[in-house]
Structure formats: structure tokens, C-alpha cells
């Protein structure tokens, strides 16, 4: 039975984190440090040490999730703890600052931490949101299987097209060449691709263009459609099959595949903020600890 990272083992890490926050907040309220609350009081040092250890442990998740042989808890458990303790870190670190902020490396570390946590919160949203959309999109069919189906359609289309005419064959070849999934970062994210265009056949297809516009289908398909209406009797059935393959089936599969890649990209994209910023945070944390003791 699938279990959400948030409700893992009765949200045990949620309760641990809440307890940790509660203790920290009460300690902060009760503490009277004879100076304004800051990272240099006894409580400040305690909260700072805890926060630093937490950050190192949270980053350790990146290693732990790759240790497939590790018997140190399950990755789901680690992720659940990673999420809740990561949220608790915001409270601990904020209390550690004593609400003293400025233009310095210490506040930089704090800001980087906030960026990492916020991106992480978005990541949790993605992990909870997109898998369902992915299932809705392609059901149990794997992306590889989608790809193989598309290739099979291409092969069939080529055979049929070669039986119709050289021109049609050429069109289909071009269509195969141009039907893209993936590509650059933006193409993956936005799932938009150019459809096969008319190129040298623009003039020939002037008549068909009107139909294309009317039917609002891509240019290759418009060409096919025109061939059905104006074509020879014996090829019209082949052309119908061809359009069914390329319009009815291939485009649907392509859209599914593109949408799938898009969702997968959404689920990964936040990590390109989360991971680099967490390493910048690690550096800022090192400098923060180094500098406060260097200039003690």
C-alpha cells in the first residue's frame, strides 16, 4: 500500500519536529540572556549548533538516497524526516538569529536556507501532485512503450505512404523526421514543438491550405486530407489509413509522451534550485561558523 511521505508511520516525524519547535520556542521565551537575543547567547549557541547539525543531516539525505544497500531506515522514512525536520529548521534557525538581520554572510546563510526550504516545500507539492497527473495521462503504459508504439506507427505509415506516391512518402518521411519529443530545457518544460511544415510544397498545397485551416490540423495532415478528397480512387483508402495513423493515433501518443516528459520535468525542476542552493548554504554556513570564531 502506497504511503505518502507526509503520513509516513502516523506522521511520526511531524510530531518530533513540532516537539522540537515547541521546546525551542519556549526556551526562547523563557531565556533572559542579559543582552538582546542573538546567536552568541548560550541558547543561541545551542540553537545554532542544532541548526548546523540539522543542515548537515538534511544534506546527507542526498547521499543516503543513493545508498541502495543501506539498512539505515527506509528512504521513504528518511524523506519524511527530511521534509519535517527541514521545516523545523526554519524555526530553529530563526530563533538562533534572534531576529538580527543585516548585510552580511550570516544573513546570507539564513536567506539561502529559506530559499532551499521554500523550494523544498514546492518539491513536496510536486511529489504529491504530479504522479497522479502522470497516471491520469498515460495510465499503466510506460514512456518506453509509448515510444515503441509511435515508432511502429511511423513504420506502418512509411509503408502505406510509399504505396501511394513518392510525394506522399516524402511528406511522411519529413513528418517522421520532424515529430519531436523533448529537446531543450524549455521544450521539455513547456511541451511545445513545431509541427511538420509545408516547406517546398507550399505552392502545390495552396488548395489544401484552406482545408487545413478549416480543420485546424497540421500541414502534413492537411495534405493527406486533401488527397482523400482529390486523390485517386484506389489510393483514397490508403490515405484514410495513413491519416488515421498519423492524426488519430500518433499525435495522441506524442501528446501523451510530451505531457509525461513535462510532468517528469516539473518533478525534477525544483531540485535545480534546491540542490545548488543547499550547497551554497553549506558554504555560507561554513563561512558563518568560521567567521564568528575567527573574529570572536
Amino acid at each position: 500500500m502506497h504511503q505518502s511521505i507526509l503520513s509516513y508511520r502516523g506522521s511520526r516525524y511531524l510530531w518530533w519536529s513540532l516537539l522540537l519547535c515547541l521546546i525551542a520556542i519556549v526556551a526562547y521565551i523563557v531565556d533572559e540572556p542579559n543582552m538582546p537575543p542573538n546567536g552568541g547567547t548560550v541558547l543561541g549557541y545551542i540553537l545554532g549548533t542544532l541548526s548546523a547539525l540539522l543542515i548537515v543531516w538534511l544534506m546527507w539525505f542526498g547521499i543516503r538516497k543513493r545508498c541502495y544497500k543501506s539498512k539505515m531506515g527506509t528512504v521513504v522514512g528518511w524523506l519524511s524526516a527530511h521534509v519535517f525536520l527541514g521545516l523545523a529548521l526554519v524555526i530553529l534557525a530563526t530563533l538562533h538569529t534572534g531576529f538580527q538581520f543585516g548585510m552580511n554572510v550570516h544573513t546570507l546563510a539564513y536567506v539561502l536556507m529559506i530559499i532551499v526550504v521554500v523550494s523544498g516545500i514546492y518539491g513536496v507539492f510536486c511529489y504529491l501532485h504530479y504522479p497522479r497527473l502522470m497516471t491520469d495521462n498515460r495510465g499503466e503504459v510506460s514512456p518506453d512503450s509509448l515510444m515503441r508504439q509511435i515508432q511502429e506507427i511511423d513504420r506502418q505509415a512509411l509503408v502505406i505512404a510509399s504505396e501511394i506516391s513518392d510525394e506522399t512518402h516524402e511528406r511522411v518521411l519529413n513528418s517522421i523526421r520532424r515529430s519531436r519529443v523533448g529537446g531543450g530545457v524549455l521544450k521539455i518544460i513547456f511541451g511545445r514543438h513545431k509541427k511538420a511544415n509545408l516547406e517546398g510544397l507550399v505552392q502545390k498545397a495552396k488548395v489544401q491550405q484552406k482545408i487545413m485551416k478549416a480543420k485546424n490540423v497540421d500541414s502534413t495532415m492537411a495534405f493527406m486530407a486533401s488527397r482523400i478528397t482529390h486523390g485517386r480512387e484506389d489510393t483514397s483508402e490508403l490515405l484514410r489509413q495513413l491519416t488515421d495513423l498519423l492524426i488519430g493515433q500518433k499525435e495522441k501518443l506524442l501528446a501523451q509522451l510530451r505531457r509525461d516528459l513535462q510532468y517528469k520535468a516539473y518533478m525534477d525542476l525544483w531540485l535545480y534550485i534546491h540542490v545548488p542552493f543547499s550547497f551554497a548554504l553549506l558554504a555560507a554556513l561554513i563561512v558563518h561558523i568560521f567567521s564568528v570564531f575567527f573574529y570572536w
Binding site: 554572510v105 519529443v181 531543450g184 530545457v185 521539455i188 516528459l261 542552493f277 550547497f279 558554504a283 563561512v287
Partner: peptide, 28 residues
């Protein structure tokens, strides 16, 4: 063409190094 973000120019590892070293350089 590439199908996953991991296969594009985007790189978490490179980003991490850049972020880490930039902070170290400027602030340390």
C-alpha cells in the same frame, strides 16, 4: 533529442559547485 532535464545543460552538480565556490570566494 534529450527527454529528461538531467540530459540538458542543466546540472545540479555544476550548480552546486558554482554556488559553493562563489560563496566561499566572496565571503571567505
Amino acid at each position: 533529442p534529450v527527454l529528461l532535464l538531467d540530459e540538458t545543460w542543466l546540472s545540479r552538480r555544476r550548480g552546486a559547485w558554482v554556488g559553493f565556490l562563489l560563496v566561499m570566494l566572496i565571503f571567505l
